[in-house]
């Protein structure tokens, strides 16, 4: 089945099984490997991508659900000025250790700050609660979001 969508500002049309996971399409068909599989059941958030600006678990999303939507992965987002602000904040606070959860964390951070430029600590923790990290204890990531919020992502 032919399915079309926009990914990282480029239109793609793919002939794929519509029940295929969006994650597999991104990684195996489009070879964008910044999106990770940590659990395959929507618990860890390592596969987070933005669909029409909203973070979703791409492991739970059949590719048909992406039809005619706008998908952003870390490969697209890293080209933006907003990415720079968030990545610098993560670097400043030590928010990335092994790095496997990091692309997902960064996309969720962007989505939060876009909707809520000055979140409270509780709002930050709530927004990131679907993304697991086993290295940092989250402290450095939460602090990084605070730093990014102070700096302000340019929208």
């Amino acid at each position: 089945m032919k399915i079309s969508f926009v990914i990282n500002n480029q239109k793609v049309s793919l002939d794929v099984d519509p029940t295929m996971r969006l994650l597999d399409v991104i990684r195996n068909e489009l070879h964008l490997t910044g999106t990770k599989e940590g659990c395959g059941e929507g618990e860890c958030g390592a596969c987070t991508v933005l669909m029409n600006e909203e973070p979703i678990n791409s492991c739970l999303c059949p590719v048909i659900n992406a039809a005619n939507k706008n998908i952003m992965t870390i490969e697209g987002f890293r080209e933006t000025s907003e990415y720079r602000v968030i990545a610098d904040a993560f670097a400043d606070r030590g928010g990335s250790q092994c790095g496997f959860c990091t692309p997902g964390m960064i996309l969720v951070t962007y989505s939060l700050l876009k909707k809520n430029p000055h979140p409270t600590e509780e709002e930050i923790r709530f927004a990131l609660s679907g993304n697991l990290c086993r290295c940092t204890g989250y402290q450095a990531i939460v602090d990084a979001v605070k730093v990014a919020a102070v700096k302000g992502i340019k929208l």
Partner: peptide, 19 residues
């Protein structure tokens, strides 16, 4: 502290893991 050498590759999704 100094800048971690693998910061950029990991945040940008450029780090190549086995998979």
């Amino acid at each position: 502290s100094v800048k971690k050498v693998d910061n950029e590759e990991k945040m940008a999704g450029l780090a190549i893991f086995t998979c």
